[in-house]
Amino acid sequence: MTTDQLLPDSTQRVAALLQALGHPFPIVMLPASGKTSAEAAAGLGCSVAEIAKSIVFRRLSDNAAVMVVASGINRVDEQKVAAIVGPLGKADAKFVKEKIGYAIGGVCPIGHLEKTVMLIDQDLMQYSTIWAAAGHPHAVFSLTPAQLQAMTAAPVAAIAQNMIVAATEVVA
C-alpha cells in the first residue's frame, strides 16, 4: 500500500479498509484531480469506461443513501434504479458527506458511514480492471469487477441509460 501518512485522512481510512480486506493493489494519488471520470482516466491512461464512478441518490421512503457504481461512460437511468430500490430524490453534497462519509469527487464504494443501498452497473463487468475513487478527488485504486462485487455485496443490474446513436451517412 501507499505510505498511509502521505495520504489524506479519508484516503487513509480507505487504505486501512483495503488492507483489512487483503486487497493487493495500492492507492494511486493522481497529480491532477480525478473528480470526473474523464479526469481520472486521463491521469491513469485508461479508458473512461474503466472508471467506476459512484453516483449517490436519496431514497424517498426512508432517506437512505443509494449508491450506483457505474462505468464512467454511462449515464445512470434514474428510473431503472428507482424500479429496483424505490422512488429516488437528489442527494446534495451535505447528504453524501453525512451518509456516505466522503466528499463528492472522491466517493469510494466501500467504507460508508451508514448502511448504503448499492447497485453495480452491469457494463462494468466486462473489464478486466476498473478504477474507483479512494476517498479523495486525487485518490483511486484498481480492482476487478468481481472484487468490487465481493467488497460491496451489491447486486449487478442494468442501470445505464439506453444511448441511441444516430447513424449518419456521408455522401460524396
Rank of each mutant, 00 (worst) to 15 (best):
C108P: 14
C108I: 07
C108R: 14
C108Q: 11
C108G: 06
P109A: 01
P109I: 05
P109E: 06
I110S: 08
G111Q: 12
G111S: 14
G111E: 13
H112K: 11
H112N: 13
H112Y: 03
H112I: 07
L113R: 15
L113N: 15
E114Y: 15
E114T: 15
E114H: 15
K115W: 12
K115M: 14
T116E: 05
V117D: 13
M118R: 14
L119F: 05
L119E: 10
L119A: 05
L119R: 09
I120L: 12
Q122K: 15
Q122I: 13
Q122C: 12
Q122W: 06
Q122N: 15
D123F: 01
D123R: 10
D123E: 14
L124R: 12
L124D: 08
L124T: 11
L124M: 13
L124E: 11
M125S: 12
M125H: 07
M125F: 07
Q126E: 14
Q126I: 14
Q126N: 11
Q126T: 13
Y127V: 09
Y127K: 12
S128C: 10
S128W: 07
S128G: 11
S128A: 14
S128Y: 09
S128P: 08
S128D: 15
T129K: 15
T129L: 13
T129Q: 15
T129D: 13
I130W: 10
I130A: 08
W131T: 09
W131P: 11
A132Q: 00
A132W: 00
A132K: 00
A132I: 00
A132R: 01
A133R: 02
A133W: 00
A133M: 01
A133Q: 03
A134W: 00
A134R: 02
A134F: 00
A134G: 04
G135F: 03
G135W: 09
G135V: 10
G135N: 05
G135A: 08
G135S: 09
H136F: 08
H136E: 08
H136N: 12
P137C: 01
P137N: 02
P137D: 05
P137G: 03
H138E: 04
A139R: 08
A139N: 03
A139Q: 06
A139E: 09
A139C: 10
V140F: 07
V140Q: 11
V140I: 02
V140G: 02
F141Y: 13
S142W: 10
S142L: 11
S142N: 14
T144Y: 02
T144R: 03
T144P: 06
P145E: 07
P145C: 04
P145D: 01
P145W: 04
A146L: 05
Q147I: 06
Q147V: 10
Q147F: 03
Q147C: 02
L148I: 09
L148F: 06
L148C: 04
Q149W: 06
Q149H: 09
Q149M: 11
Q149D: 05
Q149V: 13
A150T: 12
M151N: 08
M151Q: 12
T152P: 04
T152A: 01
T152W: 03
T152G: 01
T152S: 04
A153K: 15
A153I: 09
A154L: 08
P155C: 03
P155M: 01
P155A: 07
V156R: 02
V156G: 00
V156T: 07
V156Q: 00
V156K: 00
V156E: 00
V156C: 02
A157N: 04
A157R: 03
A157K: 02
A157L: 04
A157H: 04
A158C: 05
A158H: 12
A158Y: 01
